[in-house]
Amino acid sequence: MPSNKVKILGETILPGKTYQLSLNIAKLHTGTSIEVPIIISRAKLKGPSILFTGGIHGNEVNGVEIVRKIIAKKYHIPNAGMVICIPVVNVFGFLSQTREFPDGRDLNRVFPGTRTGSLASRFAYHIVKEIVPHISYCIDFHTGGDSRFNSPQIRIGKNDHESLQLAKTFGTSFIIKSAKREKSFRETLYKLDKKVLLFEGGKSLNINPVITRTGISGALRVMQELGIRSFQKELSSLIPKPDTLFLVEDSTWIRAKFSGLFHPTVQLGQYVKVGDSLGSVSDPFGNFDKIQKSNFSGHVICVNQSPIVNQGDAIIHITKNETELP
Rank of each mutant, 00 (worst) to 15 (best):
H76W: 08
S294Q: 04
L51K: 10
G93Q: 10
L107M: 11
A120I: 08
P264C: 05
K241C: 10
L198I: 10
G201N: 02
I139D: 00
D103C: 05
I135E: 03
F111P: 00
M223P: 02
A80E: 12
I239R: 07
P112H: 05
F101M: 15
S277P: 00
E200K: 00
I70F: 11
G16V: 03
I308T: 14
I291H: 13
D193R: 12
I176V: 13
K46I: 09
P37Y: 12
N295P: 09
F123K: 02
T18W: 04
I56T: 15
I70Y: 09
S41H: 02
H161Y: 14
S49P: 00
R181K: 12
I56V: 15
H57G: 01
E130N: 10
D103M: 12
I38L: 01
E162L: 13
S151M: 03
K177Q: 15
S280Y: 13
N24F: 10
V89W: 11
G104W: 06
G145L: 12
I25H: 14
K74W: 01
T244C: 03
S251G: 04
G63T: 07
Y190F: 15
I131K: 06
P326Q: 14
P284D: 12
L192K: 13
S297I: 00
S294V: 00
Q20G: 04
A179P: 05
L95A: 10
S251F: 12
T12E: 15
G157W: 11
K158Q: 08
P307H: 00
N295Y: 15
